[in-house]
Design a protein around this nucleic acid. Structure first.
Length: 910
DNA sequence: TCGAATGAAAG
DNA sequence: CTTTCATTCGA
């Protein structure tokens, strides 16, 4: 989907670029992802564009659609797109967390609680300390868990490459970072390599192209939904970007749904764009559908058998296909009417679902095909006319199906949620998405205001739609009962949508012409834009409606079109709380406008509902990723939890093939993934969580040895790293902070109380205890640390390396000494502590003495290793530290030696 | 956007 | 051996 979408966007961009720079800027403005795609696609796009121009000229809508399909289906290009998408998704796939990361994830919050002031870095350091101190048993738990994750991940993503470095670089221009990530992420489903492999991964998408083929049984729907959602995200992004550029003038553009934008773009670009527009619509439709389904699901899920579900999925698939070029199946028909009907249906579903659940079910079962055809028609209509109507119609049909589907699938409980729940979901989704969006929006805050204005329009639409919706609902109900959806829709549509219908029809008939008109209008005057925006805004309205349960795409279309601009102003107030939330999101998101936001939210909602339980974690992860990545790429990538990715991969990989089969496998995969996710979550939650105190204890319990050895060593390296890496400046701060931490730890009573989490609390205790016991002996451990990450550290900081080596050489105590040499502050502190320790016991003396001895001998070596600069820094640090804390050295000869050691170092350096 | 940690993987 | 990137979020 994305690929296609991107492709479209690119095409539009291409044209736009040729025509206007704005488009290009928009593209640039868009997420990095699109850019990549754009880059990759450019050549292809050029070809496609050519093709489009030719085909379009010859034939209008159907042909366009076919073209689109062809383009998508053609394979190479599409495959590439798909591959891109897949890649993106694959890229999305995150590496499974290693044991340490799991540990961090599980304990970071604890660390933060204990040390509120600490930032994540500091927390990470502490976590590292904890990890170092962690009992091998405990570690093993995490390592096992990590391994399990990895295995599952790899299983899901057979071809997953941890470091796709080579492949990725190809990507283009702009955002290298995002690209890198994506590239890296690669998980080739079957392991097709290189760019082509990606294509393979996209096999999923391919199915979409083939959608016509999709069997109800196959149920690719879920995957389709996911894909659609992803695509929608990407589309939204793209649209947003485009909108921004366009929108610069008017908020309307932002408000416009992606579909709308597409339409506009297409109109501007000309026929070729049409296909593009379709996809967006489909996406939106999918989202809406999902929303609807979620809403409907509550109604009564009981009966829907898998058939319904399959039908819903099937429909979704069809939708996708239609978007791609579904028209092929059943082109001509009264698409417009269908769309209207659909819109009506949606409300009906909303309201009448409960009443007519049974009827709907029946209709769905018996009429799935019809609905599909109708959907297709709707799609076409939407394409030509306005995304909104199309979405609505799609949604409605989809919703019907989806609702059934959801009902059927107990596993998909989420779907079954009551409408309210669905609403909540929507909101949640919106919230989630908004976050991602927010990041983006932040950039475009200025635009937001304008967008906000546009958002208001939505409510108006909603209202209108709501009124008409009731009727439409009735209609749909009846139709459903009759099972004549398609026919009724057609008949009904004209009635309700007389206005829009006419417009739509015209648009449908001449998809290009309407869009073109719109574009021209927009270009001409902002006023005209509103009309367009109204259309575009419709989708958002629709979304908001779905959220608010209001329905009516149709009414919105009609009303909105005219009043749009005025409504925009009014709308904000009128909008319900839900709407407001959306608006807020929109505002946050920037220009994307409410409509987009709503779309996103809807999509997100759908996505959630689909994924629901199992998916939640992945979704969250995605969201996080999106937030993170927002900088890089953007929300579109969110998919990414490895779980989800696994799905996709597993789906694609398992199916291995292409598209048709995916659906069912996808569902299975989804379920499997969900299960996996759940299992992982459970396992993760079951992982022992140690209270900071325990660690503190450990460190403290081990007392100085460990501290010195473990903490001190760790600390020093850190400080060293900081100094070497970049932060000579920060060395002191770090040291100080570390020192503070250490002090805190020291201060922390030994009462170590393991905060166990749930399951393994006791074991944790035991482990901890054992750990503490073990810790004392740690000196040996010191050597171990050198392995792995430590090596890295060593690399990073030569000094550290030296120190460590010294530590290793030296007895456990040696570590402390090393620390001292590295950083006087620590050494001084340690000295103080050591002094105390010394007072406490002779052992400390011995240790120190040993350390000193070891150190002194080492020193020369150290000095040799250290660069003069490093030594100078250290010396400076030491000097400063001394000056600051010269006093504290109460001690025996040993401490003196310690102090001397640093001096020696400094001297050596000098 | 970077960074702090560790670890796995790939070149 | 070195480089990437996985999680987490405050600067």
């Amino acid at each position: 989907m994305r690929g296609q979408f991107l492709y479209i966007s690119q095409v539009t961009v291409m044209k736009g670029s040729s025509r206007n720079k704005d488009h290009s800027t928009e593209e640039e403005g868009t997420g990095k992802r699109p850019k990549r795609k754009c880059l990759q696609w450019h050549p292809l796009l050029a070809k496609k564009l050519l093709d489009f121009s030719e085909e379009e000229e010859e034939e209008e809508e159907e042909e366009d659609i076919d073209k689109v399909q062809l383009l998508g289906a053609d394979g190479l290009e599409q495959d590439a797109d798909e591959t891109e998408d897949d890649e993106s998704s694959e890229q999305r796939a995150r590496r499974p967390m290693n044991a340490f990361l799991l540990f961090c994830k599980r304990h970071r919050s604890l660390v933060r609680q204990e040390h509120p002031r600490l930032d994540n870095r500091g927390a990470t350091k502490i976590l590292a300390d904890w990890w170092a101190v962690l009992d091998p048993k405990e570690k093993q738990k995490y390592t096992d868990m990590a391994k399990e994750y990895k295995d599952a991940f790899m299983k899901a993503n057979p071809g997953y490459r941890w470091c796709p470095t080579t492949n990725k670089p190809v990507k283009t221009q702009t955002s290298t970072v995002t690209n890198r990530k994506k590239l890296w992420a690669f998980s080739s489903d079957s392991a097709k390599d290189l760019p082509s492999p990606r294509k393979v991964a996209k096999s999923e998408e391919m199915p979409q192209l083939n959608f016509g083929m999709a069997d109800p049984t196959q149920m690719g729907g879920l995957s389709m939904l996911l894909l659609a959602g992803e695509h929608a995200l990407t589309a939204q992004e793209v649209s947003s970007s485009t909108c921004q550029s366009d929108a610069t003038n008017s908020t309307e553009a932002c408000q416009k749904s992606s579909l709308f934008q597409f339409a506009e773009i297409s109109s501007s670009t000309s026929q070729p764009d049409v296909p593009v527009a379709v996809k967006p619509t489909e996406e939106s439709a999918l989202f809406q559908f999902a929303e609807i389904s979620s809403s409907t699901s509550h109604s009564g899920p009981s009966d829907l058998t898998k058939q319904c579900g399959t039908s819903a999925l099937f429909q979704l698939a069809e939708m996708c296909l239609a978007s791609e070029g579904v028209k092929v199946k059943e082109p001509g028909k009264i698409k417009v009417e269908a769309s209207e009907d659909v819109a009506r249906e949606i409300p009906e579903e909303m309201e009448a679902e409960e009443l007519e659940k049974t009827t709907i079910k029946d209709s769905c079962k018996g009429k799935v095909e019809q609905s599909e055809t109708g959907k297709i028609q709707d799609r076409d209509e939407t394409k030509t006319e306005k995304p909104e109507t199309a979405k609505c119609s799609h949604f409605t049909s989809l919703a019907m199906e989806s609702s059934h589907f959801e009902r059927n699938d107990s596993s998909k409980d989420h779907v079954c949620r009551s409408p309210e729940l669905s609403m909540a979901d929507m909101n949640i989704l919106g919230l989630n998405k908004p976050e991602k969006i927010k990041k983006k929006k932040k950039k475009n805050k200025l635009d937001r205001h304008s967008n906000e204005k546009s958002t208001p329009k939505k409510p108006c639409k909603k209202r209108q739609s709501s009124e008409s919706d009731i009727e439409s609902v009735m209609y749909t109900i009846e139709a459903v009962a009759k099972g004549d959806w398609g026919a009724e829709r057609l008949a009904e549509i004209p009635r309700k949508k007389a206005r829009p219908a006419s417009n739509v029809k015209g648009s449908l008939l001449d998809t290009k012409s309407p869009k073109k008109k719109v574009k021209s209008k927009e270009k001409k005057t902002s006023k005209e834009k509103p009309t367009e925006t109204t259309k575009e805004s419709k989708p958002p309205d629709f979304l908001s409606i779905t959220a608010s349960k209001e329905v009516p795409c149709e009414a919105s279309d009609n009303i909105k079109v005219e009043p749009l601009t005025p409504t925009e102003e009014v709308v904000p107030q009128s909008l319900p709380g839900q709407v407001k939330t959306e608006d807020n999101d929109c505002v946050k998101k920037i220009e994307t406008c409410g409509s987009r936001k709503s779309e996103r939210s809807c999509k997100g909602a759908l996505y959630k509902t689909l994924v629901s339980e199992g998916m939640l974690t992945s979704l969250r992860a995605n969201v996080d990723r999106g937030k993170r990545s927002s900088g890089k790429g953007n929300s579109s990538d969110h998919e990414g939890c490895w779980n989800e990715e696994n799905w996709a991969f597993s789906q694609s990989g398992t199916s291995g093939n292409k598209k048709l089969k995916r659906p069912k496998p996808k569902e299975d995969f989804v379920l499997g993934l969900a299960k996996l996710e759940e299992e992982f979550e459970k396992k993760f939650n079951s992982l022992p969580q140690y209270s900071p105190v325990t660690f503190d204890r450990k460190s403290s319990s081990v007392p100085r040895k460990k501290r010195k050895v473990g903490s001190s060593s760790s600390e020093q390296p850190k400080s060293n790293k900081g100094s070497f890496q970049s932060q000579k400046k920060n060395l002191f701060h770090k040291i100080v902070s570390k020192y503070k931490h250490k002090k805190e730890k020291l201060n922390v009573p030994d009462t170590a109380i393991l905060s166990e989490d749930k399951n393994s609390s006791e074991p944790a205790w035991k482990n901890k205890i054992s750990i503490s016991a073990l810790n004392t002996p740690e000196p040996a451990m010191m050597h171990e640390p050198l392995v792995g990450s430590q090596k890295r550290k060593a690399r990073k900081t030569k000094i550290t390396h030296l120190v460590r080596t010294a530590d290793g050489r030296v007895s456990p105590a040696g570590g402390t000494l090393e620390e001292k040499p590295k950083e006087l502050p620590q050494s001084t502190l340690q000295k103080t502590s050591s002094a105390e320790t010394d007072c406490n016991s002779e052992c400390s003396r011995n240790a120190e003495s040993e350390e000193t001895h070891s150190i002194t001998p080492d020193m020369p070596a150290v000095s040799a290793f250290f660069s003069l600069a490093a030594l100078a820094e250290v010396a400076a640090m030491e000097n400063v530290h001394r000056s600051q804390r010269a006093t504290p050295l109460p001690h025996d000869g040993q401490p003196n030696e310690m102090s001397q050691a640093p001096v020696l170092i400094s001297c050596a350096d000098q």
